[in-house]
Design a protein around this nucleic acid. Sequence first.
RNA 1: GGAGAGUUGUCCGAGUGGUUGAAGGAGCACGCCUGGAAAGUGUGUAUACUCGUAAGGGUAUCGAGGGUUCGAAUCCCUCACUCUCCGCCA
Length: 423
Amino acid sequence: MLQVAFIRQHLQEVKDRLAVRNFKEDGIVDRVIALDDERKKWQSEFEEIQAKVNSTSKEIGQLIAKKEAELAEKLRVEVAEHKSQLPSITDKLIAVEKNLLDEILKLPNLPHSSVPAGKTPEDNQLVREGGTKPTLPEGSFPHWELAKKYDLINFDLGNKLTGSGFPVYKGKGAKLQRALIQYFLDYNINAGYTEYLPPHMVNEATAYGTGQLPDKEGQMYYVPIDGLYLIPTAEVPVTNIYRDEIVKENDLPIKMTAYTPCFRREAGSYGKDVRGLNRVHQFDKVEIIQLVDPAKSYEVLEEMVIHVEKLLQSLQLPYRILRLCGGDMGFTSSLTYDFEVYSAAQDKWLEVSSVSNFETFQTNRMKIRYKDSNGKMQLVHSLNGSSLALPRIVAALLENNQVAEGILLPEVLKTYFGAKLIS
RNA sequence: GGAGAGUUGUCCGAGUGGUUGAAGGAGCACGCCUGGAAAGUGUGUAUACUCGUAAGGGUAUCGAGGGUUCGAAUCCCUCACUCUCCGCCA
């Protein structure tokens, strides 16, 4: 959520930057300021009356102590008069505060100055590519065929147990999941991240904190009887660990990593790239999250990009890094890099990670702050990225590494998986 | 699921209707003391909004939301959470 004070001070800049996102602000920005003006007006009226009530009440107390009941009675009548004005003012104040919040919640985060303007994924900027695309032998298979051939993943069984998009991993397929999770976590812990294993369901306040609510409830699975949401990513519970906390400046940066399953309804995306593991409703992911000094957040973002890049390199997968254009960026992000791996048999680039700086957009909602050297409260910046989302990594690993004898896994997984070959 | 007890500032903990934003202690910060440190000692130590160039003032906040009252941390109601006992149970 943007800060009203910031909008007030940078009115034109805010509008210009929203335009980079291709976001039609439709007068929201001006309305926010107008509503905030109105809010101030009602608030000061309210406070003025309340101040009178408070001071008069104090006098009444003193008069009663001095046994001057008549005077006290007179003041009591006076207070009642003041108070009779309050309900209508309070109603207006509450209404205007609600309207203000409604409006400001409609505004997405402001894109960083390096974000290219643009509307669609075609406008994303290629930052760099790495690795080499394999040349597959004749008669090579897409991953869903390979998964079947080596009995690694059973999509039909998932259908039976739950529904489409809930694959069942079996045997070496299940073990490969476990190996990847373990490897990714170890890799992150080595880089100074603290591991968490958070709840996989969250309450409304938590979903609101990272920006899933309001508006995106359709993307989450919901358990109405308990009012809980299944997490779409570890970002949600883990970032909220520090909700309403004032951290010490020395504690920054706070680096956290977590493995969780992720649940996504993917409403409205039926029939689009849903084959095999390309898009599923439940998948495993290891996430990295940082809370940092605002002055250093872009430096940290680049660090995180390198961190994820090296992880991909260690898996020997061909990848490319994209800087998302304004139109393709998520609602809460200021700058996002997407990582895609090339899945050879499908001849497709698959998104496997998304690394973003949210600046204060999330922390303003969650009120995650620190006291700077001048003793001033500051919101920290939050960042996160996947390292990595498993299904598409598995898809690429299977497709790119298929040989006549089976699937030849990258060296780095050998100790985790216990073998180099899936056959 | 049933019965009971609780939820106060960074932490511990007092407070049961009036000047309590909140005693006391610990912690932390700064100073004194010291060769240096510990101990001792002095001072300071919430957040948000708002008015003000500032000094400083106002309003709100004692789990959350409502109510009673001139006045609520304190009384009443609802909800959430924690703990104890019983039940059920991986």
